[in-house]
Design a protein around this nucleic acid. Structure first.
Lengths: 297, 297
DNA sequence: GGAGCTGCATAGGTCCAGCCTATGTAAACG
DNA sequence: CGTTTACATAGGCTGGACCTATGCAGCTCC
């Protein structure tokens, strides 16, 4: 008995037609006839009654059918099971994240993940949420940490909220007139050091100002997180950044916002339509575990 | 993937030894190494860790092991299931027969058959020839004992004449004016107890009367064999039944028909286009044997 | 009714895969 | 350090799985 023969048998049983079954399994019809005949010879029983135009299973065929189907299904699960293991031994995960998360949250998590799966290459794409969402959609990312809510709400994305980040204002150590807590409208009189276009923090800050009734003024504009913090340290102005980032720069003064404060929600997103690769699912698990463990503390 | 490869894999997994595994499956050791390697290549993962003298399953191998074992076990049950059908240890026969045969001929034959093949379920369908022929054609019966000639002659049926039944007239014990032998035209003056529509005996009797030039009159009409015989016993009239049936009711008076007599031919029919299942072929053989043996006596 | 069509079976040829033997190689052991 | 053990590799052989071409039975359609 051969697995191929069982596949052929199933094809004939389903199509009730030798010629069409042969097409389905991509062999010539005589080859299929031969193989079915060989199987019948080995089992010592006819499997089909070959009435013209009406191929039907004999009782022997009916007895074989469920077992053959299970065998073939098992071969597929077998390869799949092994594949999943293989994919965790070597492979890659392409993860997108906002710059602030790349420096804040990710290092610890990626260290854990890499310790568990040293064969998996980690490919990090740093960018704003909008870019990341687009790359998720095109399939050039497996997972992405993005900021909610999504501007371009894509129903094909599954986004799980992960954590709420407090935003704070950072300023140079000797900046005068800094209150204990800042209100958004206090930013009206203070020039800001603003990130380049595309940063989620830029969108968030400007829209918060507009909601408070004014257009923010920029002392400097453009640059990544590091540059912005550098400009702030040089006294060019204030910047609004996640508290997690501010904590890593003790030389800068960090001022919280007055209640209700300014927060943003980070979510973990992936395409809904395609199951992510095993390595990516595993990273997702590690991420969710990490956040659940550390948010309770 | 090949079934052989899985067998080899299991052998190595169990013996933890390539050379001994090769002996067990009766191939040379290099062939086994090759096949295992081929399987590993196809799955994209090593299945064994080849430490000298200590062959062990990798995690991929462990994942494959139970599924491979199940697949191989399934192939064995598959052949076994079919074998059992072939060897008539298991299965069913669906046999159609006219009511008179069910009480007359069948019990003995079915007893013989069941003694020989106790694993075969016997499913008996009682009905008139016309119904039985239709069920043969649709495949809901394997074999049927029917009355010849067929009204709706179906060329797709193969009907082998089995035996000629003599028909006799049965009457209540005290019925007056009963001759030694009856002619069909004698029925003109005598009301009949008639079977329900669909009974072959009804068709046969009425058409015999019509052939003799008159329309029969019915004292009662409808009912199965038992009821008809009961009505006859109560003196409601005569009925025409197979002699075999009449013999089982010694309380009734049985009168033969004058030569050439009234007979009907019972035939064993099955579909011509599809070979009947093995169990049905065997029942056919038993039936023919029985009739041949007992008709000579 | 025969010409064409459909659809499975058969015939004959090709080629690859699975098996073989012979040999290589690496570890273990006295 | 030779010997043994045991798996891997090399290269040749053969059967079987596949192919194309053809046969043949039943059906349709003019």
């Amino acid at each position: 008995m051969q697995l191929q023969q069982l596949v052929y048998f199933l094809a004939v049983a389903e199509t009730r037609h030798f010629t069409r079954a042969a097409e389905r399994v991509h062999i010539a019809q005589p080859s299929l006839s031969q193989q079915i005949k060989a199987l019948e010879r080995e089992l010592g029983a006819e499997l089909f009654s070959r009435a013209r135009g009406n191929i039907a299973l004999t009782d022997a065929g009916q007895a074989l059918l469920p077992i053959a189907a299970r065998i073939i299904a098992d071969t597929e699960t077998a390869t799949q099971e092994v594949q999943e293991l293989v994919q965790l031994r070597r492979g890659r995960v392409r993860l997108g994240a906002t710059p602030s998360l790349c420096t804040g949250l990710l290092p610890d998590i990626l260290r854990d993940y890499h310790r568990q799966y040293p064969g998996i290459r980690l490919i990090i794409e740093e960018g704003g949420s909008r870019d990341l969402v687009r790359e998720l959609a095109t399939g050039s990312l497996d997972l992405a940490l993005i900021v909610l809510p999504l501007q371009s709400h894509d129903p094909a994305l599954d986004a799980t909220p992960l954590l709420h980040e407090d935003l704070v204002a950072v300023s140079a150590a000797g900046t005068p007139d800094m209150p204990e807590a800042l209100r958004v409208q206090d930013l009206r009189d203070r020039p800001l050091v603003m990130f380049r276009r595309g940063y989620d923090l830029r969108e968030l800050t400007t829209s918060a100002c507009r909601a408070a009734g004014f257009e923010p003024t920029f002392a400097v504009e453009g640059g990544e997180m590091d540059a912005v913090l550098g400009f702030v340290g040089a006294g060019l102005g204030l910047a609004v950044v996640p508290s997690m980032v501010a904590e890593r720069r003790p030389t800068l003064r960090s001022t919280p916002f007055a209640p209700p404060g300014l927060t943003r929600t980070i979510a973990l997103a992936h395409r809904k339509d395609a199951e992510p690769p095993r390595a990516a699912r595993e990273l997702r698990r590690v991420l969710l575990d990490y956040v659940r463990t550390h948010s309770t503390t």
